[in-house]
Write a protein that binds this DNA or RNA. Structure first.
Length: 304
DNA sequence: AATAAGGATCGAA
DNA sequence: TTCGATCCTTATT
């Protein structure tokens, strides 16, 4: 398919970040050191953070337990599909010094990915932000920035991303990040990249993130997937009939077409034209009509 | 009238 | 060249 340079760059940046993260085990250390972390806003009190909302729990916190370090948690807790991340399988570590066995490398990457994803999860709970950066509000973007700055000892850059919601942030390229905050922009971009890819582990196999990058214009099938993955917002106009098989139904063709037109800045878009584009996918093997078909019902083709 | 399928043409990247 | 966007004809429901 498309050979996106930005994609490869992003993946590489991810990998190197995973490794650096792996080497600095206690990424939550700065929080653990904060004694009054359970007091809402205490940890971030020095940040003048208006939206600081740290969930206080009477029970033990998962990341506090991590302090005892996971007893060699076997990868059995994660299904094999989680390890089938294409970027993890395809890209060797350029930073890896010395000859390392490939299967060993895979194991390391697996552990690193699991570790990072756990941290992302706990960060979500702690910051009260959704896992998908596309869903972030302006305030949540600021939360994430402050969090990342603290966690990785980056200089304060949040002011450079004022007034930006998650979608805005995701549409920035790596160059944009570097332009805004020089040498740390790339790091920040890579961290965002990790969050952006986090969602894939819960998705069906045909929901490939590899084309989920903002650099190139979004494609129709990606857009449809986006809507489908946000049922809270769009289930009234498009929804799954069978998520496992990738079968979905457009409930409000005019509305979906309007959304597509807005996204592509094509005010004259309608379902007639949108559906023509969908039909183009038949030949490409991206979308098809399911066996038990019907009006406004389509199916994502599961890639081999 | 709304949808489905697909040909033809054109433009942007 | 690819990925639609636009327009159009024919057929189905």
């Amino acid at each position: 398919m498309g050979s996106a340079d930005g994609e490869r760059v992003g993946r590489t940046a991810q990998t190197s970040l995973y490794v650096s993260h792996f080497h600095s085990r206690s990424s939550m250390a700065w929080l653990e050191e904060a004694e009054d972390w359970k007091t809402p806003g205490a940890v971030f009190s020095d940040l003048n953070w208006p939206g600081a909302c740290i969930p206080s729990s009477d029970k033990e916190n998962p990341w506090v337990l991590r302090k005892t370090e996971q007893p060699a948690s076997p990868p059995s807790r994660t299904p094999e599909q989680r390890l089938a991340a294409p970027w993890a399988a395809q890209h060797p570590l350029p930073e890896a010094e010395g000859p390392v066995e490939e299967h060993c490398l895979e194991q390391v990457q697996t552990m690193v990915v699991e570790e990072v994803l756990r941290d992302v999860n706990t960060a979500c709970k702690l910051l009260s932000i959704p896992p998908d950066p596309l869903d972030w509000s302006c305030v949540q973007v600021q939360k994430w920035l402050l969090w990342t700055e603290h966690q990785y000892r980056l200089p304060q850059t949040s002011a450079l991303f004022q007034e930006m919601c998650g979608r805005d942030l995701c549409f920035l390229t790596e160059a944009d990040f570097k332009q805004r905050c020089s040498q740390f922009g790339g790091t920040l971009f890579a961290h965002l990249d990790i969050w952006r890819s986090g969602g894939m582990f819960d998705e069906a196999p045909w929901l490939d993130v590899k084309s989920n990058y903002p650099n190139q214009p979004i494609q129709l099938w990606q857009f449809l997937r986006e809507l489908l993955l946000k049922p809270h917002s769009y289930s009234r106009c498009i929804r799954w009939l069978n998520k496992d098989k990738g079968i979905f139904k457009i409930e409000d063709s005019a509305h979906v077409a309007r959304l597509w037109g807005i996204r592509k800045n094509r005010p004259a878009m309608n379902y007639d034209k949108l559906s023509r584009s969908i039909r183009q996918y038949y030949k490409k093997g991206i979308i098809r009509k399911p066996e038990v078909s019907g009006r406004l019902i389509y199916q994502f083709v599961i890639p081999v």
